[in-house]
Amino acid sequence: MRDKLKIGFFYKEELNLYGDNGNIEALVYRASRRNIQVEVMEIDTETKMNSSNFTDINFIFMGGGPDSAQKNIYKDLISNKKEYLRDYIEAGGVSLFVCGAFQLMGKYYLSSDNSTLEGLNIFSLYTKHYGPKKPRCIGNTAGEISGRITQDPVFKNINRLDNYLVGFENHGGRTYLEDKEHLLSNVIKGHGNNSEDNTEGCIHLNSIGTYYHGPLLAKNPHLSDYLLAKALNTDTLEVLEDVLENKAHTASLKLKE
């Protein structure tokens, strides 16, 4: 087991829609309560990824942002961060990408005017925006977690809640997985990736992409602990008192869309 959680927090200032930084707060809280050392490295457009400082990062997070903020970081992401992220993810590094960041991990984003924005091409998916006449995907959402996670012995050992995820989604782009087996959850409530195929999010090795804001990890302590355990390379974590977290999760399951 690794004795330290070192988080690479990408574009904290630009990509923090709907309090997505709460995902970091949740992870830091859950690690600290267990006396696990935590360090959060903020990585922005000025950060050069060639330092040895980045080699021992064991969790990466990137959230969602408005279009303007995503444009601000896009060039840096493609030019300066792509290689690091690809190497990290393909080596089995643990990471979480929400909304806009989830889309950017895919192959491309096709706008309604047919212009294409290149993605990092790490997740096998693409995103399409059909224009303003197609309603955005907005509302409370819930899904049943993929067997890729629920059947993982680490999750089985860690999970003391249920096999569901809850969150809040707000996206105009529709995302399509090239292989639906890689979904994060099956949609129970809400739009999911595209309002069509009941998929939500994506799993690639130990990395997750999702449209769930909430923040995701605050409302889903079982997923938080799963990612924490994966990052620390362990299958056991001290049990925390999660009365509030579990109530928030269960109440969110009952919310209307």
């Binding site: 309090g19 709460g22 707060e25 949740a26 830091v28 809280y29 923040p215 605050a218 409302k219 009365v243 509030l244 977290e245 928030a248």
Partner: peptide
Amino acid sequence: AVRLKHAGVNIEE
């Protein structure tokens, strides 16, 4: 309440 808990603010149930 969960966010406040994570921020160190104790909210009685």
